[in-house]
């Protein structure tokens, strides 16, 4: 397997505020990274910055940003734009909001198919794509407007558009959060199917460690703009080392995973303008000690497993 993406020290700033504070990502072809964290931990912003989709006012910097052996940080927008969709694609949290409300589903698919450079009649290809993501009666769905379909259907249709584009890196930003349980399971099954069908790398953003456990080969846990622990999914689940990861897993075990603020971890994320100087989690950590006021480097704790904590390192 070859290296798809290599990111070193990715930073996103909004004026004086640091939203993402230096994260590293390595992703191989066919691999899925689960990016876990609370709302506001910077996981979505980090991924949007990879696709250069951040709103004005947010600045991205990185020491290394290599995609398929190409330095994509230095590309001008004119050369980067063709990569979007065809190479790097993204599935968003709000399926209903992802569609142009004035256009039919057919228009959306036709647009994606044209973008993929497909020649020949688009309709057959569209039907094939919709069928491939498990949409029943695809011919009728093509004629529907977005407001006439359910969130689950729309998320499938969006995934069908991305399948049409055959990108090598797919970022999925909480694609099941706005869906109910049964539909969530179906969409996750669809993603597992895609993992087999497409030779793409996936970054799957979620706040639900249970979802990550089902889908990710490796997990990276984000807190306050930093990755605090990363490692193979099985290792992280079986032996979490960082107190925050332990809290997350305890919460998931307590079946409270859907809650936005985590019951097992007291307090909340620090505000962006009031980050503690050292470990960002220290103010909420039961095991915090004076040395936690120093910045913590990533420490290897096992094969491919590292964390940002001075406890039993």
């Amino acid at each position: 397997m070859s290296r798809l993406l290599e990111v070193r020290n990715l930073r996103v700033t909004a004026g004086p505020l640091a939203v993402v504070r230096g994260i590293d990502i390595d992703l191989d072809e066919g691999e899925t990274l689960g990016l876990i964290g609370e709302s506001g931990s910077g996981k979505t912003v980090a991924c949007l910055s990879l696709l250069r989709l951040l709103p004005d006012g947010l600045r991205t910097e990185a020491d290394v940003l290599i995609y398929k052996d190409r330095d994509i940080a230095s590309l001008p927008e004119r050369e980067f734009r063709p990569l979007r969709g065809r190479e790097l694609a993204m599935v968003f949290q709000d399926p209903v909001g992802s569609f142009n409300p004035a256009k039919r589903i057919g228009w959306h698919l036709r647009t994606a198919i044209a973008r993929a450079g497909h020649d020949g009649p688009w309709r057959e290809r569209a039907l094939e794509l919709l069928d491939g993501v498990g949409i029943p009666q695809p011919a009728a769905v093509l004629e529907r407007y977005p407001h006439q379909l359910s969130g689950g259907m729309l998320q499938r249709a969006l995934i069908a558009m991305i399948v049409a584009l055959k990108p090598s890196l797919i970022v999925a930003d909480e694609p099941t959060t706005n869906l109910d349980n049964i539909v969530e399971e179906q969409i996750l099954a669809l993603f597992r199917d895609l993992q087999k069908r497409l030779a793409a790398g996936f970054i799957f953003i979620t706040h639900d460690i249970g979802v990550a456990a089902q889908i990710a080969d490796r997990i990276a846990v984000m807190y306050a703009g930093q990755i605090v622990e990363t490692g193979p999914t099985a290792d992280i689940l079986a032996a979490p080392r960082h107190p925050y990861t332990r809290g997350l897993i305890a919460t998931a075990n307590a079946l409270a995973a859907r809650a936005e603020t985590l019951a097992e971890i007291p307090g909340q994320l620090p505000a962006l303008d009031a980050l503690p100087p050292g470990c960002g989690f220290a103010p909420r950590c039961a095991q915090a000690r004076p040395a936690c006021a120093q910045p913590q480097p990533m420490r290897p704790v096992g094969p491919g497993h590292a964390m940002r904590c001075l406890l039993d390192a």
Partner: peptide
């Protein structure tokens, strides 16, 4: 311009 579907379309690489 600030609706999510505009961001989605940009993410597909549309001009």
């Amino acid at each position: 311009m600030h609706r999510p579907y505009v961001q989605v379309q940009r993410s597909l690489g549309l001009s």
